[in-house]
Design a protein around this nucleic acid. Structure first.
Length: 473
RNA sequence: GGUCCCAUCGUCUAGAGGCCUAGGACACUACCCUCUCAAGGUAGAGACACGGGUUCGAAUCCCGUUGGGACUACCA
């Protein structure tokens, strides 16, 4: 049987990394088994869903390197792929469940439900739905209808113990009475997630549902609905949540949590995918670096961990630096352009490409290219505090001497510059560190920069000299 | 409250009864390299939550405790 896996994000706000991690697992699973990967958008909660968020979700996934065979944008044999466009389908299946006796009308109001739930809790009983409307007599039902009392549709959950054979959690047993009857259609006629997911998974021929373990208890419910509809439930795999550094579920208050946010910080998709894939899954005992191809080749559910993982930004950044180092100069340069121009720098593409070898092992994120390369693309190099201090401490006339030396240097190459700088330091009785730092400060405006001779070569003689003159006392 | 899930270095993990004086990676510390900052190299410190069993032998199996988390909605 061909594997059909899916990812079903709700496009409210941006795509959360914890969420996308389960999507990544689902995708990798499908690809590994040569199956199909479906993207379905769960946008029934119209209030919170915006068109912008919808597009953002698709874009974030594509950026990360996840592709799908069927989805709202590419279509497929089971269109439409947006739940908001499938309302008639849910209604039809809800009617079938009602007709077959698998669902019933519930006339309880929110207030009644709430009161009974509290009472049950106080009495030490499970607070789930008590099944009152399940056993309504014809007369009672008729009476409710005569009053035109609004009703929701509730699924009559199968009695007894429920067992979910989960690919990650193993056999999970829910004791009788624990999983009560749940609403599948609200009194306003809108379908509830529990119904929509089951119907979609069934209709779309999904064979494997890989999702967060906050939905573990939904497993038996989804399966029961599908069974009542005459379908065969998919196999479920519930992967643990991603936590923040404080071991609370990862959320906005932990800082960046969306794919989009990491992208804007200059995290490279290769790194994010690699990092996320290792959050709850391992290739083997040793491997830390896993490419997209290797992930597809080796991913399977049997090596997915069943305990929750905490998100560690430091490791992500280390990995990001690793991938940045592996990129071709032109590729890296083109990825940096956006950050540089957004910082107001005027980028010369040729210069930028040539500068990459100097900065690629110094960047944890693409955004850091801005500080590293500011001196190259802006002539506003007002020294920062430390740089000012270095210039201050330089021997009398040192920068003037440097100016003189470099003004006539030929050829203007890193090698020649290095020689000149060394000669300069030596004649002032300074070592390299002491001798070069004032020059670095004067030319770049900072105490930290890429290697000096190479930096000066790129900057060019005229700009270098102009800055030295500007700083000389 | 009830049910369920989870429990190895600070973090991600390897480990499916003897291969474990517990392996790898990030972070950390020291040293090397070095024009600053990085990168890189070498070394080091660092964990089986606790208590009972089972067994010749347990990180690995069972029970309990503790601690986290989820669910218990006309949210998804």
């Amino acid at each position: 049987m061909k594997v059909r896996a899916r990812f079903a994000p709700a496009p409210s706000g941006s795509l959360h990394v914890g969420n996308v991690r389960t999507g990544l697992f689902s995708w990798a699973f499908a690809r590994h088994h040569g199956g199909e990967f479906i993207l379905r958008v769960e946008d029934t909660d119209a209030s919170r869903v915006t068109e912008e968020a919808y597009r953002g979700v698709l874009e974030s996934l594509a950026w990360l390197g996840i592709d799908w065979d069927e989805g709202p944008d590419v279509g497929g044999p089971f269109e439409p792929y947006r739940q908001s466009q499938r309302l008639d389908i849910y209604r039809e299946h809800a009617d079938r469940l009602l007709a077959s006796g698998h669902a019933y009308r519930c006339y309880c109001t929110a207030e009644e439900l709430d009161a009974r739930r509290k009472a049950a809790l106080a009495a030490g009983r499970p607070p789930g739905y008590d099944g009152r409307c399940r056993v309504l007599t014809e007369e009672e039902r008729a009476a409710h209808e005569a009053q035109a009392r609004p009703s929701a549709l509730r699924f009559a959950m199968t009695e007894g113990e429920h067992v979910l054979s989960d690919l990650v959690k193993g056999e999970v047993r829910f004791p009788p009475g624990q999983l009560g009857d749940f609403v599948i259609v609200r009194s306003d006629g809108s379908p509830v997630f529990l119904l929509a997911v089951a119907v979609d998974d069934m209709l779309m021929g999904v064979t494997h549902v890989i999702r967060g373990d906050d939905l573990l208890a939904s497993g038996p419910r989804n399966a029961a609905v599908i069974q009542a509809l005459g379908g065969t439930p998919p196999v479920y795999a519930h992967v643990p949540q991603v936590l923040g550094p404080d071991r609370q579920p990862l959320s906005k208050r932990h800082g960046s949590t969306s794919v989009e946010a990491f992208r804007e910080q200059g995290i490279v998709p290769e790194a994010l995918m690699n990092y996320l894939s290792l959050l709850g899954w391992s290739k083997d005992a040793e491997t830390t670096l896993v490419s997209r191809e290797e992930l597809i080749a080796s991913f399977d559910l049997d090596r997915v961990s069943s305990n929750p993982a905490a998100f560690d930004t430091a490791k992500l950044e280390w990995m990001n630096n690793h991938y940045i180092q592996t990129l071709e100069d032109d590729d890296l340069a083109s990825r940096c352009v956006r950050f540089l121009t957004e910082a107001g720098l005027l980028v010369d593409p040729v210069l930028l490409g040539r500068a990459m070898p100097l900065v690629k092992e110094r960047m944890k994120t693409l955004a850091e290219s801005v500080e590293l390369l500011r001196f190259l693309f802006s002539d506003d190099v007002e020294p920062n505090e430390k740089a000012a201090g270095l210039i201050e401490k330089a021997p009398e006339g040192y920068l003037a001497a440097a100016t003189e030396r470099l003004e006539t240097l030929d050829p203007w190459t890193a090698e020649a510059i290095q020689e000149a700088l060394d000669g300069l330091a030596e004649s002032a009785g300074l070592n390299r560190t002491k001798g070069w730092q004032p020059i670095r400060a004067a030319v770049t405006g900072s105490n930290v920069s890429p290697p000096l001779p190479q930096s000066l070569e790129l900057l060019g003689r005229d700009r270098t000299v102009a800055r030295l003159v500007g700083s000389a006392r």
